[in-house]
Design a protein around this nucleic acid. Structure first.
Lengths: 249, 249
DNA sequence: CGTAGAATTGAGTGACCTCAATCTAAGTGG
DNA sequence: CCACTTAGATTGAGGTCACTCAATTCTACG
């Protein structure tokens, strides 16, 4: 399929629902059914695909012409160091758009950081030009996108503060609270519990600590009666307690 | 002065040169004279003001209607914790625009993080509406702004990686290299040396370490013959050596 | 000079790391 | 249905990087 033809096909279906993802998702956007927010996106299945855990979705250094929506599973933005160390810059959960920063750079600037699947994922790709025309077409869409960019920056700043200033327990609590909020917006939290495919190893790389220490930190949070973990589910027992730890440490 | 009147006055002078600040500043933008890039901005002096070191330029929680250009001195974006700890999220150097993320949020969302003067500063303020109309008026300006936002995010991600993964020496080297590059773009580097008003205390808060340890880390970099510090000047002796430390540690 | 802010240095401590072993759960093939 | 495998979680012991506290020296500036 030639590039123009693909462009045309994607423009054909109603693109508006996709852009609902831009919405920050206020209280009224909360869904009662798990993943319903994602499921109701009438996206053409043709441009959707799956990838297994650990697959590289966006390679650092590639020039990009696509943005993605994550429909199932988790993904992560990763900075790799030459000696194998890595920093997870952020997690993407179902319903998130990713690599959308591409839209911010005019030319064909290469991606600075990779995006990799954390679990098995189902993603949906859109030509950058489609997205760009959507954004440029309407001030409201533009505003949503701007707010999206602003959010990314705010999350990065908060995580930076966590890693730089907080103890292991404080960082962990902050991360759980962030995920709790984001997943709540997406309707992916039930009874203060949510599915979390991230391994202790991932938490370690996201919070700037070792897997071993993540384990001990989690234990202390469990012993304090703040959280529980069962299988792949994380349960927040005491939201207030977790907030206290997050603030103080 | 009423708000509309102020708006009108600011729209009167040629706003284009101000927006040159949006330019990333490629190799051809390099100036030979110190601060000439900043000095040649024909900005109305009427909306310029000065502040002394440590003054709060943007308070966290305030709703904002202004963006700023930094003409002299350094400023910093700061996240404050309840118990007095703080994380410096980034430094602003002469020629930088700041609090411009305001433009990203449509409503009157309050600023998430404060901006404070690091040294005595001279700043220049613009009503947000002026900036907004400039950006919306031209695709090129819009693209410059987008690239600006993208840069902010990239810097934040890099710093996060530094704090999370690198040793004290690696972080310090990375920071010096970033400042070196940015100040070079602004023509504020001469003989691989630049003026740096940031105290060890500031470096500590930016890199997630204590002032005492910053001191010892600086000493080790000096002893290794990588940098020198004299008065308020920081001199990069071995750019390659510093890069090696930055990459490996 | 005298004073205050900043930098420097020493000594002791603790949070977090490293290395390495063990345990658990969930496949997988016979 | 059960050995076998493997990824992940857990625990222990010991080391170290960076922190805390506190004293001293330097530097700028009135």
């Amino acid at each position: 399929m030639t590039a123009p033809a693909m462009h045309q096909r994607l423009m054909a279906f109603d693109a508006r629902p996709v852009c609902d993802l831009f919405q920050a998702g206020g209280p009224d956007a909360r869904a009662t059914d798990l993943e319903s927010n994602v499921e109701r996106l009438p996206v053409s299945r043709a441009n959707c695909s799956t990838a297994r855990a650990n697959a590289t979705l966006v390679r650092a250094g590639d020039t990009r012409s696509t943005v993605y929506a994550l429909r199932r599973g988790w993904a992560m933005r990763v900075a790799h160091l030459s000696d194998g160390r890595r920093q997870i810059l952020g997690f993407y959960v179902p319903g998130d758009l990713f690599d959308i920063e591409t839209l911010l750079v005019g030319g064909d600037l290469p991606a600075s950081f990779a995006v990799r699947a954390l679990s098995a994922v189902e993603i949906c790709s859109f030509p950058i030009e489609t997205m760009r025309s959507i954004i440029h077409g309407s001030p409201e869409q533009r505003a949503r996108f701007d707010e999206f960019a602003h959010r990314q920056l705010a999350y990065a700043y908060r995580r930076m503060t966590d890693i730089g200033q907080r103890t292991a327990q404080g960082r962990m609590a902050q991360l759980f609270l962030e995920l709790f909020e984001r997943l709540t917006e997406r309707g992916l939290v039930r009874d203060q519990a949510f599915e979390m495919p991230a391994r202790q190893e991932h938490l370690a790389d996201a919070l700037g600590m070792t897997p071993v220490h993540v384990n001990r930190t989690l234990r202390s949070l469990k012993d304090a009666g703040l959280i529980e973990q069962d299988r792949r589910e994380t349960h927040i027992i005491s939201l207030d307690g977790l907030r206290a730890v997050a603030d103080e440490q």
